[in-house]
Design a binder for these strands. Structure first.
Lengths: 229, 229
DNA sequence: GAGTAAGTTTACTGATGGGTAAGATTACGT
DNA sequence: ACGTAATCTTACCCATCAGTAAACTTACTC
């Protein structure tokens, strides 16, 4: 766009330009309605270049997915890696997550809302990224509670449950943030931690929530696990 | 399938059969890869019938969306409507939700994972359904806490925040449940309530979570809201 | 300033699948 | 019976793309 005659550019650079545009278009239209022609045109290039460099439409989408997933995970891990208690690391990671998706909305849309309707390889890639995040969060939860919770030990299953709650809540709060532009990632994270973490601490400490009136199923009230009652 | 010669069937019935099959196919393949021919064939019918009754592929998908959203919301509301404290109604509604999505996985997939890449009308329909659920949950949260929380009043914004946490967590726990087939909806709900509700109660009661070390931003620690610190 | 490899384009194909025109068949009321 | 309205089908059109063949052009090397 800067020059009338499109200058030639080394492959590495062109690939990144293509992926940049592809992320925008995939986020705007979704996988199938997005056309390779449009992406090529936006990148200031013709279609065969895309196929030469990225093999196929699916290859292009996979490249987008990989790059954006890597960046998001890196943002989380980079923030959570530093020294400090697991509790603080979880806080830092969540803050970084909210900051990242606020800053890179297209990236988030591509990563988040494109799971189904795609081929084996693509859904597998999405699932892999999500599992990585889950594992990370579950690890922090387990460590954090082992440290703060005293006697009660949190099994892998419980930690995984908590991780799903946190990650799902974070997904959803992404939408909430769009309608509250004034909110900083830090404030959102703080609210979320207030809800989930404090609750968990107290549950481990013995304070339990009971269904006000069991609607049915008088199953013997034994065998209760740690976070569950 | 039961009879060799396909019997004629009144429009109302045929429409439901078509929608039944469409939900299955859309859930399996996603919107664009799903072909109207395949849906028609599964319904034991030819393609023009689908267009005669449902207008277009988009109309067909919209019909699926509307029917399934209505059923899901009805399941939630039906369970939450009965007398009892808001707290109990929330519990009942969440239990019903988990039970419903366990029982009708296709319905859930269509409702949940097909938001983007679709036309204005469709995304609007999905957004509408989600807003309805959010509003319902937010109402219960606000009422429940007004009742249990004593002095602290929860603003609409805070209730909405909590609703997003709950709904997002429920979304995500759907996946968790797939890998834990032994878990009943009641047990999952109980765990979720243990985490979120107990946390909220205590936060309202004055117990706050503080970021272990504020990483930056020494903003004056005033102006704090109710759930937030 | 040839030679060549990397970068780039024009111009096509082939399939898929949404959508429709025109007409055939069955049920049903009178 | 017989007309008619609802149900249903065959057979087609055509726009849209993913993907490719073949050739052209720029830049860099020796």
């Amino acid at each position: 766009m800067s020059d009338k005659r499109r200058r030639r550019v080394p492959r590495q650079v062109r690939e990144q330009q293509i992926i940049d545009m592809a992320v925008q278009v995939f986020a705007k239209r979704g996988y199938h309605p997005a056309s390779v022609d449009e992406i090529a045109e936006m990148a200031g290039i013709s279609k065969p270049m895309v196929y030469l460099y990225l093999d196929s439409k699916e290859g292009l989408f996979l490249a987008c997915l990989r790059r954006e997933a890597e960046r998001l995970v890196a943002a989380f891990q980079g923030a959570a890696r530093g020294v400090g208690s697991p509790e603080m690391r979880l806080w830092a990671g969540l803050s970084a997550f909210f900051a990242y998706v606020t800053e890179h909305r297209d990236s988030w849309v591509v990563l988040h809302r494109q799971a189904s309707e795609l081929s084996e390889a693509i859904t597998e890639e999405v699932a892999r990224a999500r599992r990585a995040v889950m594992a990370e969060v579950a690890g922090l939860v387990r460590d954090g509670l082992a440290e703060a919770g005293g006697s009660a030990r949190l099994g892998d299953e419980e930690a995984d449950f908590v991780a799903h709650v946190l990650v799902g809540a974070a997904d959803s709060l992404t939408d909430w943030m769009e309608r509250h532009p004034g909110e900083t990632p830090e404030r959102v994270t703080r609210r979320l931690m207030n809800m989930v973490w404090v609750g968990m601490r107290n549950v481990l400490g013995g304070e339990l929530w009971e269904p006000p009136e069991p609607p049915r199923a008088p199953e013997a009230p034994s065998d209760e696990g740690s976070v569950e009652g």
